[in-house]
Design a protein around this nucleic acid. Structure first.
Lengths: 349, 349
DNA sequence: ATGAAAGCGCTAACAA
DNA sequence: TTGTTAGCGCTTTCAT
């Protein structure tokens, strides 16, 4: 099989073809392509005409090989279809496009091995830089190698263990504390915490914030009110039921992420109760339900923009000390978090 | 400024370095890199060692320049952060990764000009193929050029006007018809249709399906019950209010997409009524509201997979006649669409 | 099985 | 201002 064998299509014209047709040298053609000043108007015109006639489109692989800059950024997130990461993705894209680069995206699907392969592929493509959400349990040795080999990286959403690079995080702990204190201000004393697997960095931080809020306001921590696990509806239903059977049942719930919030809503319905609730992480339609869901909102766009700015600075050679930017959260009151404890009929119906 | 000037980092090792260190020719090194059979075990081992020691990573730009295949696919959608397109994106990504390629993604933001620039950039990068959701009002001449120049393309969600390529669509018309007939089966006679701008292909098709359902079941079309426009909450509130003031007010609503559905829910609340509703396009949390929202679900993943399969076939030289694949929709009953007309108190409260 | 060498399309240095 | 040319890192003949 020959090299160019895509059906019956002729090979695409090269800069040589353009130069020949325009009656100039390839150097001049290249200068025109790159808008360099030292070209006569006549040559420029001739080249532009030739480009038009031939339908010439520069081969960026060749350009890249020559210049060493690929004008591309790699983005690895957990899942591009996740609402949070899709917003982050979009924000990064806008920055990338603004500077004339392209964006390679990929989803790790929480697999450290898949993440490794994708990142190494990006490195083979010689991306100018990398923005990474690393799955739990990643062996980072290969990253250290690539990083010291000269691939700038910024980590988002969770900090790396070994790589010494810039990081952008949400203030998970502070946000959780804020949300739980909001409930406490409503008179709630017994507040359940339902969240994702305790191995996850973000889940850990949020639970810590929940605990801080309680202890700081003189409440006692009751481990029986904390559920941290992979999220399954049946389980949440049962767990909430058990909590409600307690002699001193919770009047409010702090949901550690939006998926758990959805399940808590279902569990409340099935258990025939209505508790106050604050959820971490905003979601579309949070104001369509009745009552609207009070959330501690993160800022995925801000995370994306910040990450790109940090990366950009490194690309331009910044030697500043490493930065860890922590983004503030925002409490959005929609109703579910403002139900006072006095209005809750605690326990099983 | 020199070519490699990224701070103090040394240039990355090349295949030449690997060959030298391994004590073999660069040809042999290349053969090892590509898992070609005709290499002695000793040489292979030596090369692998050298790779390990040097932290060598193949430069895909050079490879691409030589082989002509970039192993990359470009995806242009309206917005990677849109729930529908983010799922499509993910499905495409999985296919792309499975075949060892990378995915370049971009959002047109409904701008024909931005779409053009992004697509041309992808073409300069010599992507092997392109999956495209074209914004309304695109001038397709440049696409025809690129397409005939040999860039395979598949269009998704909306058909192109000029380019003769494979297409994957949702059965917008049939799905809308199905949804509206579902309402009719519940005894509804007066059904409002609230949807996006009439210029949009999908909106047009869905309104057409709505109309077909009504006429096919012997109902009369009332233009006063159809609202097709850019979506703004205040407007929807007012429009619904007006419809409810009609002497023969609607008892049900067909929402042409999920954003309009959300607004209709708000409008119903503010107008103090509760009508039956079926919405086109599924959304997360559709079952968290009370009642759950009955939807005509599309299949974004199926669209992505189908598009990649079609593209793949063309990449492998398929000369089959052009295909337009129409994906079926699925009615998901969650409650809002099953409220019988007899239970609706029509008109203003 | 392997090394040497040509050449993919481009940019940049040099010469004119 | 311009044309010529070396060479980016790789794959792939062609000899050996």
């Amino acid at each position: 099989m020959t090299q160019h064998d895509r059906g019956d299509h002729a090979r695409r014209p090269t800069i040589k073809d353009v130069a020949r047709l325009a009656g100039v040298g390839v150097g001049t053609a290249s200068r025109v392509l790159n808008d360099m000043p030292e070209v006569s108007a006549a040559s420029a015109q001739a080249v532009h005409n030739a480009i038009e006639i031939l339908g010439y489109r520069r081969n960026d692989s060749a350009r890249t090989l020559r210049t060493g800059a690929t004008q591309s950024i790699g983005l690895l997130v957990e899942d591009v279809a996740d609402p949070f990461f899709s917003l982050l993705n979009r924000a990064v894209e806008d920055e990338v496009v603004r500077q004339g680069s392209v964006l390679l995206t990929a989803s790790s699907s929480k697999s450290a091995e898949r993440a490794r392969q994708l990142i190494l592929t990006f490195c083979s493509r010689r991306v100018d830089g990398l923005i990474i959400t690393l799955p739990e349990g990643s062996d980072e040795d290969y990253l250290v190698l690539e990083h010291t080999a000269g691939v700038p990286m910024v980590f988002v959403d969770r900090p790396p263990r070994k790589v010494a690079a810039d990081v952008v995080l949400t203030d998970n702990r502070g946000g959780a504390r804020q949300g739980v204190k909001h409930l406490i201000a409503g008179g709630h004393r017994r507040i359940a915490c339902i969240t994702d697997r305790a191995e996850l960095y973000t889940a850990q931080e949020r639970v810590a914030g929940y605990q801080e809020a309680l202890t700081e306001s003189g409440n006692t921590l009751d481990p029986a009110l904390v559920f941290s696990s992979a999220l399954q509806q049946e389980q949440i239903d049962a767990v909430l039921g058990r909590m409600l059977a307690d002699p001193d049942p919770p009047t409010a719930v702090f949901a550690g992420n939006n998926r758990s919030a959805v399940m808590v809503i279902g569990a409340m319905r099935r258990n025939g109760v209505r508790l106050a609730m604050v959820a971490f992480d905003d979601f579309e339609l949070a104001d369509v339900v009745e009552p609207g869901i009070t959330v501690v909102a993160q800022d995925p766009q801000g995370m994306g923009v910040t990450a790109m700015n940090l990366l950009q600075a490194r690309l331009q050679g910044s030697q500043e000390p490493l930065k860890t930017v922590v983004l503030e959260t925002r409490l959005i009151q929609r109703g579910s978090g403002e139900i006072p404890a006095s209005e809750i009929r605690p326990g099983r119906p």
